[in-house]
Design a protein around this nucleic acid. Structure first.
Lengths: 205, 205
DNA sequence: GCACAAATTCATCGCACGTTGAAAAACTTG
DNA sequence: CAAGTTTTTCAACGTGCGATGAATTTGTGC
């Protein structure tokens, strides 16, 4: 019903009138559909349809489904530098709390479905796990750890913290274990933040 | 070239000579392939091939791919009761340590690939998430929490602990963040067990 | 404004999938 | 051992996929 009385012209062939960026439209559509359906579940046809474009454009612009996937997945929903700055602002003995609040603040509003979708892509395709690992370990965690300045095994601490964050997301958004999936942010902070804090600045043996 | 000099008999038709349990062979093959490839990635033909059987047997015995999937996924690698008993044996102030040791003891030897595969199925298909949730929350966590006997919000504590365990598995086996992915069991116990212990028996706010 | 390049759609190809029905072989029962 | 049942393979169908190449339209340089 989204076209109303507009009779569906079969859309004329040939070059489009100026202004419309097919490549960008495909990338945006690809991000959505890949996230929702995973790599194999997303079809080139459905992505092209959402972009309002013919499926052949995927081959024309990205050399195929794989190429489109590679380009689309690399576009992350948050800016790493802003994120790191925000996490590192304030006293280091409250960084655990800030991480929990930031994480839930990002994903709770969008229903967590996006997080579930990201996990789906991560587990379904090794490429995505690689990209995510490079981003998380090579960029985000490295900077956070450097900012905190803990001397003892900083990389291990960072990945331990990551494990708690990933797990919180998995249980809250993907498998949805109750009551954790419905627990309010304050309670989550009180429960989880101290454990994160211990990983990052406490005694881990 | 994978048949060598063995002339490929096209395998005679009709009922097989006694003893071979096609149904069980299919279930075993299905568990492996579904785990490795996820639901959509696993093809009926590949499962049947691994079971040494024609693809039509999937429809004959399980009514189709979905039916086979439902049966195959419900077969978990560990016995819940044995697992619970083992976790609850010993002093309750060491249950965190016992959980970490048990978890790593189960998955580390099989390379963690199986865990990654399980996560793949969980994230790819809502049905699996449902099954896993029922098993974890309804059976395993409920019993463990009851066995520990903590009064304050036992279910929340259980799911918090689950979040740390899931996250440890994700980081160690799926996205493979270093150095956590390669850290030895003793160090993992020293790092993670206290946090689990706090979730289960400590002060969570 | 005319030739040429770029962008887009369409029709179609080949392939792999899940499923189906018939034929064939082995068991089972009397 | 004959008739009937169960199990298995085989051949094929319909479908949907990613990809390709020709046709068509728009934009650009001279």
């Amino acid at each position: 019903m989204n076209e109303g009385t507009q009779q569906a012209e079969p859309r004329r062939r040939g070059r489009r009138a100026g202004g419309e960026d097919t490549k960008a439209a495909l990338l945006a559509a690809a991000r959505e559909v890949f996230m929702q359906r995973g790599y194999e579940g997303a079809t080139v046809r459905s992505i092209a349809a959402r972009a309002g474009v013919d499926a052949a454009m995927v081959n024309h612009w990205f050399g195929g489904k794989e190429g489109l996937f590679a380009k689309a997945v690399l576009q992350l929903p948050v800016d790493p530098n802003t994120l790191v700055d925000h996490l590192l602002s304030g006293p280091r003995e409250h960084i655990g709390e800030r991480i929990v609040r930031t994480f839930l603040g990002v994903w709770d509003p969008i229903g967590g479905g996006q997080f579930a979708a990201l996990m789906r892509s991560v587990t379904a395709h090794d490429q995505v796990a690689d990209v995510l690992r490079d981003f998380f370990v090579g960029t985000l965690l490295k900077k956070v750890v450097a900012g905190i300045g803990t001397e003892d095994r900083p990389e291990l601490r960072a990945t331990l913290a990551a494990s708690q964050i990933f797990g919180m997301g998995m249980v809250r958004y993907v498998v949805k274990f109750e009551p954790l999936a419905s627990t309010d942010v304050e309670t989550m902070v009180q429960a989880v933040a101290p454990n994160l804090q211990r990983y990052l600045t406490g005694d881990i043996g």
